[in-house]
Structures are given as C-alpha cells and as structure tokens.
Computed example of a mutant assay.
Amino acid sequence: MGQDTTRSTRKGLPPWARMLVTPLILLVAAALIWSQLPKGAYSTDLSRIGDGQPALVLIYDSTFMAGMRVMGYMDEIRDDYTPQVHFLVANVGTPDGRRLADQHGVRDGAVLLYSDRGTLVEQLPAPASVEVLRQALDRSLMATR
C-alpha cells in the first residue's frame, strides 16, 4: 500500500504543456516590454531648426523624469503632424542641447516650438498633458501660416 505515482493520477498540466509555459511567459513579457518602448527615435540634429519646416524641440535630461513624460506625449501626437513638423530632442548632456537650454533658460521637459524660418514661436516649461502639447503645436502652426 504505497503511494501511486503513475502519470494517470498526477494532477496539473501534461508534460508537453509544462514545457511550453516558461517560453510562453518569456514571450508575453518581451511583447509587453516592446510595446512600452517609444515608437521611434527622435532626431537630435538641431540644425534642422529653420530649414523650411516647423520644429518641436524637447529639452531632455536623462537624470530627470519630466522629459520622458513629455516624450510620451510626443509619441502620441507624432503621427498626426509628421511630415509637416520636425520632432527633435535636445539632450542637455550634449554641448548643443546644453547651449539651447541655456539660451532659453529652460530645463528638462520644456518644449520649444519654432517656425519654419527658425523663429521661436512658443515655449512650454513642461506640458502637463498631451492635449496641452497638441494645442500649443496647433497654435504655433497657425502662427506660422
């Protein structure tokens, strides 16, 4: 009268299903991580300001969070305005990014909106929502027409 350890009396998943659980969990985790990544890289080429197309420039500092939040807002509206607007990032960790931030007295998360000729049209200290950013971009586009 010992314990019955045959497969027919075991509870749980069949062996083939247990072998699939770990890869399935890894695949789902990878898909979730992938879906949270930004839609695409933003150009850091600030020479595009004033090249005949309006530009939205995010001042970004990797040691703070406001810039990442605003970049998420940019991700949400980018498809609505591309190709008529350049979406650029000025990283304050680079000389050009630091110069631009200092020139306008802004910090991480600030957005600078430029006309097609390179004139600063509007400056936002750190938009509080995607709608605030969208409205400012619409205003700046109307001002340049």
Rank of each mutant, 00 (worst) to 15 (best):
M1P: 07
Q3A: 10
D4S: 07
D4G: 06
T5V: 01
T6P: 05
T6H: 12
R10K: 15
K11V: 14
G12Y: 02
L13K: 05
P14M: 10
P15N: 08
P15K: 11
P15S: 11
P15G: 09
W16D: 09
W16V: 05
A17P: 01
R18H: 01
T22E: 05
T22I: 09
P23F: 08
P23K: 08
L24F: 10
L27T: 12
L27I: 11
V28Y: 08
V28W: 11
A29S: 15
A30H: 04
A30C: 10
A31K: 08
L32W: 15
L32A: 15
W34V: 04
W34T: 09
Q36H: 11
L37M: 04
K39N: 06
K39F: 03
G40V: 04
G40W: 04
G40Q: 05
D45H: 13
D45T: 08
D45A: 07
L46G: 02
L46Q: 03
L46N: 03
R48T: 09
R48I: 10
G50D: 05
G50F: 04
D51K: 12
D51E: 14
Q53R: 13
Q53T: 15
P54K: 14
A55L: 01
A55P: 09
L56H: 08
L56Q: 10
V57T: 13
V57F: 05
L58E: 15
L58V: 05
L58M: 12
I59F: 09
D61Y: 11
S62P: 08
T63Y: 14
A66G: 07
M68Q: 09
M68S: 07
M68A: 06
R69P: 00
V70D: 02
M71Q: 12
M71S: 10
Y73D: 06
D75T: 01
D75Q: 02
E76D: 06
R78Q: 02
R78A: 01
D79Y: 01
D79S: 08
D80L: 11
Y81P: 04
P83I: 00
P83H: 14
Q84I: 08
Q84W: 04
Q84R: 13
F87C: 02
L88A: 05
L88P: 00
L88I: 05
V89K: 05
N91L: 07
G93V: 12
G93Q: 15
P95S: 09
P95Q: 06
R98K: 08
R98P: 07
R99E: 03
R99C: 00
L100W: 03
A101Y: 00
H104S: 00
H104L: 04
V106M: 03
V106K: 03
R107C: 08
R107G: 13
D108C: 02
D108L: 02
L112C: 00
L113C: 09
L113N: 07
Y114R: 03
S115E: 06
D116L: 02
D116P: 01
R117K: 13
G118S: 04
G118L: 05
L120D: 02
V121R: 14
V121L: 12
E122F: 01
E122I: 01
E122P: 00
Q123I: 03
A126H: 11
A126D: 10
P127A: 15
A128L: 14
V130A: 15
R134P: 00
R134E: 14
Q135F: 05
A136M: 07
D138G: 09
S140L: 08
L141F: 10
L141P: 03
M142D: 08
A143Y: 02
T144I: 10
T144D: 15
T144G: 13
R145P: 01
